[in-house]
């Protein structure tokens, strides 16, 4: 009989009409995401990050733009961690490669934007950067103090040793004190340099690379 199939089909839908609901009210209710859900923005903690930039190197699509600074003790720290969500493949390669496991997804999947330009996210907040600055100057001060103390201790030790060795010869300590002071100064300067300058050339280099890349892809 023509139409029998149609009626059977309608039976199925009617059964479902009164059955268990398969849907839920999305913006009000949200499904929990799986533990390893890849989505949203990247988050990281600059206190843990060692600034190795492995994540940026693992990225297939150059979606990560990092600016790393070096502190007075030659340790690298993240300053800007720009995640270009528009370029991201959400492939998880960056997260997997991080040696200290500080890189994580924030799982906020509803991150669509009105503009293409807004599709960037900085994992470092301004607060983080302020903290970083304080930290950097602390390290610098510490390094300077340490260097000075070290130089002073060295000079003293040397002067003492020489004074002991050449007792009775009053001219030599004079020459020693002249030679010692330049040391801490040079060290402090060397320490200041990378902290202040390293950021600039790094960023410049990267920007240039990004430009080149863009040109190549276009």
């Amino acid at each position: 009989m023509f139409g029998k199939g149609l009626l059977t089909g309608m039976g199925v839908t009617i059964k479902h009409f009164f059955g268990k609901k398969e849907t839920f009210c999305y913006p009000e209710e949200k499904l929990p995401m799986a533990e390893g859900f890849r989505g949203g923005d990247l988050t990281m903690d600059w206190r843990v990050c060692i600034g190795c930039q492995m994540c940026a190197m693992a990225c297939p699509n150059k979606a990560l733009d990092l600016t790393v600074v070096t502190d007075a003790k030659k340790k690298r720290h993240m300053k800007y961690y720009i995640h270009k969500t528009g370029r991201c493949l959400f492939c998880n390669l960056c997260v997997e490669v991080c040696p200290v496991h500080t890189l994580q997804w924030d799982k906020n999947y509803a991150n669509s934007t009105w503009n293409k330009e807004d599709m960037v996210h900085d994992a470092m907040t301004d607060k983080d950067r302020a903290d970083l600055d304080i930290f950097l100057s602390d390290v610098e001060k510490k390094a300077k103090a340490e260097a000075e103390a070290k130089a002073k201790a060295e000079a003293e030790a040397k002067a003492k040793a020489e004074a002991e060795a050449a007792e009775g010869k009053p001219e030599t300590p004079k020459a020693e004190t002249k030679a010692a002071p330049p040391k801490p100064e040079a060290k402090a300067e060397a320490a200041k340099k990378p902290a202040a300058q390293n950021a600039a050339p790094d960023a410049e280099k990267k920007a240039a690379a990004a430009e080149k890349k863009k040109g190549g892809e276009a």
Binding site: G3, K4, G5, L6, T8, G9, V12, T13
Partner: peptide
Amino acid sequence: EYDQLLTGNEIF
């Protein structure tokens, strides 16, 4: 269920 809904549906 698909068989009921589609396979037997005359229009389909």
